[in-house]
Computed example of a mutant assay.
Amino acid sequence: MKTLKLGTRGSPLALAQAHMVRDALVAAHDVAVEIVVVVTTGDRVQDRPLAEIGGKALWTKELDAALLDQRIDLAVHSMKDVETRLADGIVIAAMLPRADVRDRLIGAASLEALPEGARLGTSSPRRAAQLLGERPDIVIVPLRGNVATRLAKIAAGEADATLLAAAGLDRLGIAEGVALPLSTVLPAPAQGAVGMTCREGDDAVAALLAAIDDVPTHSAVLLERRFLAALAADCHSSVAAYAQIEGGRVVFRAEILLPDGSERQGGAFDRSAEDAAAEVDALAAYLLGAASPELRGLFGGQ
């Protein structure tokens, strides 16, 4: 078979994840894989929150275009950055085993240790809402950039602390920070998962990727993405969801929040895998029904 062209963003974390996928493919098939760096709008624009300029598509549209133009054969993504509705002609083909889903606090030993009025740097609506819910006194300041850039901004005093995904830090070999409990900071849907997309109908590439697909991760992430779809959530929405699959059962936890953290509607279920999809839809409907008109109005179609 021809050399596989694997598309990725060019950040250190994206490249680390691309090498993980390449290594897995080579081990499974002894196939040649070339890593192709694709610069995305999200990489180029660093001075504004993504929600202001187009949302998650800014991480994916150039990679999607490269796939559809056959410049690459597959693309590697942090699944939490992939839009809920995929571009026409693009499919999610596989996922690597999921890493630590928690967020790590950088800049303080705990949330309680943050001083009164501390500046928390983040451009994530979810993280901002969750932290404000725990500490209404903190001040949220915008903070974007790759992991190294954000760590440097904290060291330079642009903010007192920030939250970063434990999975990304681990993949970069960075031990800094304190993992926050899921009871306090539930992760973004699909956090910690690395996924691969390919062209719809490209059976040869899909077959290669199927051999490295981690089915429990893939199934869990699809449920979390289903929850986003059931809410009609967008990049402005403060949403958290986490599915764990074991022994044919799914334990699912989720919450929706007002941007200032003043309202937090959460729920959970433990069901058989066969019933999980319907339960996800029901949980989304329940949380929207329990929400105030202000919170419910932040989701599409409400």
Rank of each mutant, 00 (worst) to 15 (best):
G266F: 13
A233W: 09
T162M: 13
A276T: 07
A165K: 07
A241I: 09
V185N: 04
G201T: 08
E112R: 08
A254E: 02
A285G: 10
T184Q: 15
V21W: 08
Q244G: 09
V239M: 06
V147P: 04
D100W: 02
E112N: 02
A57H: 14
G195V: 02
I90Q: 08
A240T: 11
L111Q: 03
I53F: 06
V280I: 11
A14V: 07
P189H: 05
A161M: 02
A282G: 11
K80M: 12
V33N: 04
V38Q: 10
M196W: 01
S123K: 06
G157W: 03
G201I: 07
A240F: 09
T8Q: 00
T60A: 14
L228Y: 05
I138L: 15
T84Q: 12
A24E: 06
T122K: 03
P49S: 03
L169D: 06
L105A: 13
I212S: 05
G42Q: 03
E263C: 01
D203Y: 08
I140N: 01
V38A: 12
A190M: 04
A282H: 11
A210T: 10
V215Q: 15
A28G: 11
V194E: 03
A220N: 10
M95I: 05
F227E: 10
Q191S: 12
Y242G: 05
A152P: 01
T41A: 15
R253W: 00
K56D: 11
V38T: 13
R226C: 06
G297W: 00
R249N: 08
V76K: 12
G121S: 09
L25D: 02
L114E: 11
A159K: 06
I256T: 05
G145N: 04
N146P: 00
R119F: 08
L180S: 04
V205S: 01
G289L: 00
D275I: 06
L228H: 08
A282Y: 00
L105H: 06
W59S: 11
I35H: 09
L114C: 07
L298N: 01
A152G: 10
V205R: 00
S262A: 15
S124L: 09
H77D: 06
A65Y: 07
D213C: 15
D213I: 05
